[in-house]
Amino acid sequence: MEIVLISLLNGLVYGMLLFMLASGLTLIFSMMGVLNFAHASIYMIGAYLAFTVSQVLGFFPALIIAPILCGLLGAAIEIYGLRRVHHNGHIAELLFTFGLVFIIQRGVQMTWGMLPMAYRVPAILDFPLFTVYGANFPAYRGFMLLISAGMLLATWLLLKKTRIGLIIQAALTHPQMASSLGHNVPMVFTIVFAGGCLLAGLAGVIGGNYQTTEPGMAEAMGPIVFVVVVFGGLGSLAGCFIASIVMGVIQTFAVVIDYSFIDFLKPLGISVTADNLLTEILTVPVARIGALLPFAMMILILLFRPRGLLGTRDT
């Protein structure tokens, strides 16, 4: 029981971090059709910038400055890069972001070096918030939840209550129609791309010290964010939210399950004694493959529902 509760809590924290990364990507992906491979690289830049700024000004100014810098970087990438590639099609745009990954990776290595940064949780937030069944729940995780919930609320308000939000929503589902109605769609694109990068930067700021700030962090987060976006479905922030939480919770829960396929077969009187590839697969406990479940789930949902969980149109 206690394991369930604690896993649920931690899954929630991780899921919210995923959501912060994935929401930006969903917005970009839905509107522009671009699977932005460099999204996780922006997340990494956010963490590094936050580290550098927090060395000088402290953590809380970094919380604001680093995401804004990432947003500006995103705007620059859109205006000077993506926009020029746009007419060459989606694969060209995708390859453009792909090239960016290489450049950002080496750029970060050249600027900050190859080793992990000593980017730590600020002292003011470094205490246990409460205790469940003898396990501490650190205040910083509570803070992360707070930030991501606040971001969720702010994004929701922005999308539902402001004019630009309504245009973005329109462009999300009917890009051509929005453009025909005379809205400046390229401008909306820039705003969305910058906004998405800003969210990725914010995720980097609070994720950089929750995890470690190192040149490999983009590679570690990249694929899983794609999975969340596709699983949740195109054009749906709600789907993205559900997918993030589901993926977060599943990954934390899978670790607790020590059963393997063979355990399901045992009641049928089947047991294995041989030692070959098949038995090797059958006896792998779920805990060992926990981190792979999201990929398997994504394949499954795409086979039966290509638009994803709550997608409004086909991908």
């Binding site: 896993s7 003898g134 670790v255 926990g290």
Partner: peptide, 21 residues
């Protein structure tokens, strides 16, 4: 006695819970 996927785990808190238990 556990094996975990190499470089794929983002959140170790469930492992910690398991170790504690």
């Amino acid at each position: 006695d556990e094996l975990m996927p190499f470089g794929k785990v983002q959140d170790f808190s469930s492992y910690v819970t398991k170790i504690k238990a």
